[in-house]
Simulated scan of single mutants.
Amino acid sequence: MIEHVLQTLPQVVIDGLALGAVYAIVALGYTMVYGILELINFAHGEIFMTGAFVGTALFLSFSAFGWLSSMPILLSLLLVLVATSIVTGLLGMGIERVAYRPLRSAPKLITLITAIGISFLLQDFVRFITELKKGNYILTGPSLFTGQVSISASSIWSGFHDASVKSSFFIVLVTAVVMMVTLDFFVNKTKWGMAMRAVAQDRETAALMSVNVNKVIALTFFIGSALGGATGVLFAIQYGTIDPYIGFILGLKAFTAAVLGGIGNIRGAMFGGIVLGLLEMFAAANLPIISNGILGAEYKDVFAFSILIMVLIFKPEGLFGKVSIEKV
């Protein structure tokens, strides 16, 4: 059993990093909104899904006009990422303005139910539009960066098996790292980032210090939704097939990653996403062996949510979170 785990470890690490990078960026959207509004934006997974469909539609349009063959692939990817980020960022701002802002003084349960309602609304809207245009709600992602790269892990240690990855893995990983580092710099080193941290710490005091709270919250939704939409494009490129329901389970797992790292902590969300991706791929590759065939690879989802339950029981503030003390 240990021998099999070690043999598959290089492939598990590679697949886990790709999936973990997706979880990490989507988790950032959850943790940014929660840090400022203490709202679990369960519609964020559907914003990620919308980004996957918008990006795929743009790639199909580029292909129909012959632009994909006439311009560098990386330039096409950059244009699609920017356009999708703007569309989903504006969508996130619109959701905040219409659905969440009027309910800021309402009980948190009301806003939570509203977020779930927005989630279902986006699912059905995307499904309706896709079926209207294509006759089927399942789309095949763009065939970009499909070449296979072989990694000779056995040269590092003879007990490892060689691993193979799509060339899109490197695009996904590099783009994800750039987005995470840029966001971390923005939040910690810029004036708007300082305003976000001030509003997250004490909204009323920040307003008294002439911080425009509404603008800061709208910007937070824009950035989180833009990152989520761009990640949807990367997901479509890496995994190939998308449908209107991919955001639901992935959004829950990204939320699990945010809780694991410490909800409200940006660096914690990044770490939690990577760890969850690695653990999930480890479970998918090794559960059948560890359990002697009782549990199949499909139980990786159970594995992920078992982690959430354990974190909530033993360390509810997360790995990087701080225990909040409520003053009375």
Rank of each mutant, 00 (worst) to 15 (best):
7 Q>M: 04
8 T>V: 03
9 L>R: 00
9 L>G: 00
12 V>S: 01
19 L>V: 10
19 L>C: 01
21 A>E: 00
23 Y>R: 05
28 L>Y: 03
29 G>K: 04
30 Y>L: 06
32 M>T: 05
37 L>T: 03
38 E>A: 08
43 A>Y: 00
52 A>K: 00
55 G>S: 08
59 F>N: 06
60 L>Q: 09
67 W>I: 12
74 L>N: 08
75 L>C: 04
76 S>L: 08
79 L>D: 01
81 L>G: 04
83 A>H: 10
83 A>R: 00
89 G>T: 01
100 Y>F: 14
103 L>F: 09
113 I>V: 14
113 I>E: 07
116 I>G: 03
118 I>Q: 05
124 D>F: 11
126 V>C: 01
127 R>A: 14
130 T>A: 10
132 L>A: 15
134 K>R: 12
136 N>K: 08
142 P>Q: 09
142 P>R: 07
144 L>E: 08
147 G>N: 14
147 G>H: 12
147 G>L: 09
147 G>I: 09
150 S>H: 11
156 I>V: 14
159 G>R: 02
160 F>Y: 10
161 H>Q: 13
162 D>G: 11
163 A>Y: 04
170 F>D: 08
173 L>E: 10
177 V>L: 15
178 V>N: 02
184 D>A: 15
186 F>Q: 08
190 T>A: 10
191 K>Q: 13
191 K>M: 09
194 M>L: 15
209 M>S: 11
210 S>A: 13
214 N>D: 13
216 V>I: 14
222 F>K: 02
226 A>T: 02
227 L>M: 15
229 G>A: 05
234 L>C: 06
236 A>M: 04
240 G>L: 06
241 T>P: 05
242 I>C: 10
244 P>R: 08
249 I>R: 09
253 K>W: 09
255 F>I: 05
255 F>A: 01
263 I>Q: 07
264 G>N: 02
272 G>S: 10
275 V>T: 13
276 L>S: 00
280 E>M: 01
284 A>V: 06
286 N>T: 03
287 L>R: 05
295 L>Q: 04
296 G>L: 09
298 E>Y: 13
303 F>N: 05
304 A>Y: 06
307 I>Y: 02
307 I>H: 07
308 L>T: 10
310 M>T: 13
316 P>F: 12
321 G>V: 10
323 V>L: 14
326 E>K: 15
327 K>I: 14
